[in-house]
Design a protein around this nucleic acid. Structure first.
Length: 608
RNA sequence: GCUGGCGUAGCUCAGCUGGUAGAGCAGCCGCCUUGUAAGCGGCAGGUCACCGGUUCAAACCCGGUCGCCAGCUCCA
């Protein structure tokens, strides 16, 4: 029985029935081994189904095979799914009689909303459920499902409520589809940025430094810096100016910004100055969780005129957030993050134009990096006063503003209440990583809070003082997360312009080392990250080493190449290779790098 | 933070019901001088995450801590 199921990717009705029925079969099997288990929710999901149980005696992963065996037996018994609709009192009594307290709680809620209650039974198992189901268990493919994992989950998703045991199952119409899914998942795991990050020596973590605090290795740092260079150029062209601000700030700044009131639990605990005078209070400093307050102070540096708006302050700022330990995940969720941040101060009239420009920049990036499966989420506030600043009028106004811009741009989006920042609504660009986790890749946020709190003003043409609006935007999100998506999208094979090593020159034998070295020196002279494989490994081994490191270009030099003053150019992305005059090859490579060609994709050719 | 699982060499992993550790790759040193994904030989490398307990004896059993993984909650 599902509380509410909103398929992100549509599931057809028969699949829904099958998965949903499997959840019931799972519950029936679990009740055989844990007769006192309380049932939570058991909905179909994108890859199968799950069911939540409150257990008197815990289950372990090692119990799953036995439960699965019992499920198969139930399926073979051809149990019929029968629906029964009961009046309120009778329904509640039935659930109470079954001793299903969680269901009773949920039923009471449903009844408050005036809904009728339906039950489905199959064999000895009865569950309050709105259906639909298959007609009988024989319609469930015996080999199309598999119990997958065991995990904890909170009852009603509330961390203050009891923790339940959730059993996940995979389910597909046929055994082949199940096998294919499992195979693809294993394949996807090979692209996991944590695995590739280690293999390609991009970044690491060390528990002495602290969890969630990535150390960028030389190779990873190249990627960060190339990305930054790219972003800085684009921002320059769009009229941004760069600023630099400290990593810490006095607590007073965050009182002013509202972070200490609404964001404190995500901030690192304060550092206190040692005051010699016991009467004067110690100063408190915080690691910055966001760059905005610093930027607002830069805005306030002197009076501003309407003539300088929009003022676009950009910084690759490092922020620190004390994320809960359980939610840290590789580079996807860290505690120190470098944001591709900027704050735009503009008039209400300029909002639309500015957001359009930012959206255009975003689209340009995603197209460039070929990030597919990206969708826009309009993140709105809800009535949670703990989470959002209390100003209904401005929320409505700014939310509508964003909606209008989206309509104007004719882009598709989904709305999500309760997902806004505490200071205003956002346009989040969502994507899925390799393990199917949905994450925000970048964000555009409208801020109506800061201008008030910081008393931001500009002098209008008529001499009056007016308030600007603030747009926060980070098209590349953070280095950490964005690079994790790139690693997974590219399977670790970066285009030449981003690649830590852009070309490895592999001599066929030692005799050709001088020629290789000469080429490498020339390339390094034109700022190309070239290196020579001067090991005494066999030629095959050298090729293998370059390929396993996913170096985008291998230049092979031997007797023929020396004689003709050429290189044999082998690209990582494509099978075929070509012999190219050395001088020409150097020019081509320089051009690819300068144009930021996405030559890690096989459909992209070398320049003519 | 919570629930469950995991933690053996730089990496991937072996190590039976407790008898104080082993392979391949990587590294280093030789030999080989190589034409498109692993040439050959040798050497070195581990307080078995950490702390405590049980035991004649602990990588293995028990407790705690730290870290990692999945999920929940939360988020760039």
């Amino acid at each position: 029985m599902s509380e509410k199921y909103e398929p992100k990717h549509k599931m057809d009705e028969s699949l829904f029935r099958m998965r949903h029925s499997l959840a019931h079969v799972l519950a029936e099997a679990v009740l055989q081994v844990r007769p006192k288990a309380q049932l939570g929710f058991g909905p179909p999901i994108r890859t199968g189904f799950y069911y939540d149980f409150k257990l008197d005696e815990p289950l372990a992963e090692s119990d799953l095979p036995d439960i699965e065996k019992r499920m198969r037996k139930i399926i073979q018994e051809k149990q019929e799914f029968k629906r029964e609709d009961l009046p309120k009192e009778q329904a509640l009594k039935k659930l109470e009689g079954m001793g299903q307290e969680l269901k009773v709680e949920y039923a009471q809620e449903l009844l408050k909303a005036g809904e009728n209650l339906s039950f489905y039974s199959s064999g000895p198992f009865v569950d309050m459920c709105e259906g639909p189901h298959v007609s009988d268990t024989s319609k469930i493919p015996l080999n199309g499902f598999k119990l997958d994992s065991l995990a904890g989950s909170y009852w009603r998703g509330d961390s203050h409520r009891p923790m339940l045991t959730r059993i996940y199952g995979l389910a597909f119409p046929t055994e082949n589809e199940l096998k294919e899914f499992i195979k693809n998942r294993e394949l996807a795991l090979k692209r996991d940025h944590r695995k590739l990050g280690q293999e390609l020596e991009l970044f690491t973590f060390d528990e002495h430094v602290g969890k969630g605090l990535p150390l960028w290795l030389p190779n990873g740092t190249v990627i960060r810096e190339e990305l930054e260079k790219f972003a800085k150029e684009l921002e320059f062209k769009d009229g941004y100016v760069r600023v630099a601000t400290p990593n810490i700030a006095n607590g007073e700044l965050y009182k002013l910004s509202g972070h200490l009131q609404l964001y404190k639990e995500i901030m690192f605990p304060p550092m206190k100055s040692l005051e010699k005078d016991p009467d004067s209070p110690a100063e408190e400093f915080y690691m910055k969780p966001m760059n905005c307050p610093h930027h607002h102070m830069i805005y306030l540096n002197r009076p501003r005129s309407y003539r300088e708006l929009p003022l676009r302050l950009a910084e690759y700022g490092t922020c620190y957030r004390f994320e809960k330990s359980g939610q840290l995940a590789g580079l996807l969720r860290v505690r120190s993050l470098s944001m591709n941040d900027a704050h735009l101060y503009c008039t209400v009239d300029q909002i639309e134009e500015e957001i359009k420009k930012i959206v255009a920049m975003q689209e340009f990036y995603y197209k460039k990096f070929r990030l597919e499966r990206v969708w826009i989420r309009l993140s709105l506030h809800d009535q949670d006063k703990e989470k959002f600043v209390d100003n209904e009028e401005l929320w409505t106004k700014t939310e509508n503003m964003l909606r209008e811009v989206l309509k104007e741009l004719k882009v598709e989006y989904e709305e999500a209440a309760g997902e806004a920042a505490f200071y205003g609504p956002k346009l989040d660009y969502q994507t899925e990583n390799v393990i199917g986790r949905e994450e925000t890749i970048s964000t555009i946020q409208l801020d109506f809070t800061a201008p008030e709190r910081f008393q931001l003003e500009f002098t209008a043409a008529d001499g009056s003082k007016q308030r600007p609006l603030v747009i926060h935007r980070a098209p590349l999100g953070t280095h950490e997360r964005f690079i994790s998506f790139l690693i997974e999208r590219f399977g670790g094979a970066f285009p030449s312009w981003l690649s830590p090593i852009q070309v490895r020159i592999v001599p066929v034998a030692e005799d050709f080392l001088p020629y290789a070295e000469k080429l490498s020196d020339d390339l390094r002279g034109q700022m190309v990250r070239a290196e020579v494989d001067a090991t005494t490994d066999s030629f095959s081994k050298k090729v293998r080493n370059a390929v396993t490191k996913k170096i985008p270009n291998i230049w092979i030099v031997g007797a023929n190449e020396v004689k003709d003053q050429t290189v044999t150019w082998r690209r990582y992305a494509v099978e075929k290779q070509a012999q190219v005059p050395a001088e020409k090859a150097k020019g081509m490579l320089a051009l690819m790098i300068q144009q930021r060609t996405m030559d890690n994709f096989p459909d992209v050719d070398l320049p003519p």
